[in-house]
């Protein structure tokens, strides 16, 4: 008998320590190191939470996309576990994007929300992956429902290039990319802002991997319980 319970006994303390150190470094950089921006003031610091949350949400949904393809192709439960876990973590970060964005917009734009291309396509992305999780909640591992959810996970990812390029293709309220610009990485920012953004991104990436490892472990334990229950049922 394996392994799920043994894995629970050895949580990734190394990863936990790294993520904790990363979060601490990000907080020091955001609140002490980086200077206050001249025009937006203190509220500009929200960007160091908003932008990394968006990047991690996109990364998480890219993992869903990749693992869903591998699941449909190889039909191995392991890929399904990673896709499901990443979708849940992605929804968390996408929710944070949709909360931190309006909290920045209200003092800067004077409104909480506008129905422009980037905001609307981000909301659509959130709804797609909420639908994915709702379908997953109703379907057994390896069932047709899990395969349908994988298709949603793949198709939903196509919204991400639309979100990224929406500020370039259409006239929107949302600011243009300040870090990835045609003049080069970080050309639109002060160096200390770029360093702070990179530290915050590093911390959020470590948090993503920590949350993923916890969520994957949970799914493996569920599988182990199901397996034992089925074995017991058939043995009687």
């Amino acid at each position: 008998m394996s392994d799920a319970s043994q894995e629970t006994d050895s949580p990734g303390y190394g990863l936990l320590g790294l993520a904790g150190a990363g979060v601490l470094a990000a907080l020091v950089a955001i609140f002490i190191y980086v200077p206050t921006e001249k025009t937006e003031g203190v509220v500009q610091r929200i960007m160091y939470f908003h932008v990394p949350s968006a990047w991690i949400a996109f990364f998480a949904f890219f993992i869903v996309f990749l693992c869903s393809i591998l699941f449909l192709w190889k039909k191995e439960r392991e890929w399904d576990i990673y896709a499901h876990a990443s979708a849940e973590v992605g929804i968390l970060f996408c929710t944070l994007v949709l909360i931190t964005g309006p909290l920045w917009a209200k003092p800067i734009w004077g409104v909480w929300w506008v129905w422009d291309a980037r905001l609307t396509s981000t909301l659509v992305l959130w709804l797609i992956y909420v639908a994915y999780l709702m379908l997953r909640a109703q379907s057994e591992p390896g069932s047709t429902g899990a395969r349908y959810a994988a298709v949603i996970g793949i198709v939903g990812f196509l919204d991400i290039p639309l979100i990224h390029f929406s500020v370039l293709w259409w006239r929107t309220f949302h600011p243009d990319p300040k870090f990835i610009t045609s003049q080069g990485l970080g050309a639109g920012n002060d160096l200390s802002m770029n360093i702070t953004l990179m530290i915050a991104l590093g911390a959020f990436t470590l948090l993503y991997f920590l949350l993923m490892s916890l969520r994957v472990q949970l799914e493996r334990m569920k599988d182990e319980i199901d397996r034992i229950k089925k074995e017991r049922l058939y043995s009687h």
């Binding site: 003031g41 203190v42 509220v43 610091r45 909290l103 920045w104």
Partner: peptide
């Protein structure tokens, strides 16, 4: 230090 409440809420 205007708008500190928004940063706190975030």
């Amino acid at each position: 230090m205007d708008n500190l409440g928004y940063l706190f809420a975030v």
